[in-house]
């Protein structure tokens, strides 16, 4: 489903050239549950941004469902993000002036989906998250866990092929963090591909496949070990 080959991403910091990613190869199959771990600065977030088409690599090939994404225009990339990719962020990124309901509705508004259909889908999605009572609340009236579940509802509302989560529990206490993780795992059980960046080894341990990064390289990938074994 996802095929990265020889990905390189370079940042210029002052006079220095920093290789955020160098020569990264990665393949993710439909329905996989992958964690990307590593110390900060190892390039895991950059990798996630490239997977999510928020960033373009300086070199390499990225095929998403057999589409060569490197040569897509801004508009075409936005189209792929809209329909195929759901994002979950550490800081939720809910729009403060909108209610939970409106936040979840936002991707469908951008896509130009009919108001009646939007309403129905929002209700279903928030219902699944157990947030029926909280639909009319704004983010500042919700707990951290609730906010992240609203964000998850938003990320899945367009039925994407893959969920990209960047430290989804990084801003939550343990209990609500576990809640959020279980929600994400439920999605995975229903067949959604999930790639999650985390530095929490316990979370990493729960995933079916772990990728470890250091200095912009993948130094360990459990799926390779399995293949070797």
């Amino acid at each position: 489903m996802i095929r990265l080959e020889g990905i390189e991403r370079i940042f210029e910091v002052g006079d220095e050239t920093v290789y955020a990613l160098s020569n990264v190869d990665l393949t993710v199959e439909q329905g996989e549950y992958v964690s990307i771990m590593g110390p900060s600065g190892s390039g895991k977030s950059t990798l996630l941004n490239i997977l999510g088409l928020l960033d373009r690599p300086d070199k390499g090939v990225y095929h998403f469902e057999d589409i060569d994404t490197i040569h897509l225009s801004d508009k075409q990339q936005a189209h792929v993000r809209r329909h195929k990719i759901g994002f979950i962020f550490q800081f939720f990124h809910l729009v403060a002036r909108l209610t939970a309901e409106q936040n979840v509705e936002l991707p469908m508004i951008l896509a130009g989906i009919d108001a009646r259909e939007r309403k129905q889908r929002v209700h279903e999605a928030l219902g699944r998250m157990g947030l029926n009572e909280r639909m009319k609340h704004r983010p500042d009236q919700l707990s951290g866990g609730q906010r992240q579940r609203v964000a998850i509802a938003r990320s899945t509302i367009m039925n994407p092929a893959i969920i990209l989560a960047d430290e989804p529990t990084g801003n939550l206490d343990r209990a609500s963090g576990m809640d959020v993780i279980r929600t994400i795992e439920d999605l995975n059980k229903q067949g959604m591909t999930v790639v999650m960046v985390t530095h929490d080894p316990e979370l990493g341990g729960r995933t079916g496949r772990q990728v470890r990064m250091e200095d912009g390289r993948i130094i360990r990938d459990t799926s390779d070990e399995r293949a070797l074994a």
Binding site: L54, A78, H79, R82, H83, H93, P107, L110, R154
Partner: peptide, 16 residues
């Protein structure tokens, strides 16, 4: 800024 970033992430192209 953050809202604009979010809009981009959930599929709004620059033109939108």
């Amino acid at each position: 800024t953050a809202e604009i970033g979010l809009l981009k992430a959930i599929g709004a192209p620059g033109s939108q």
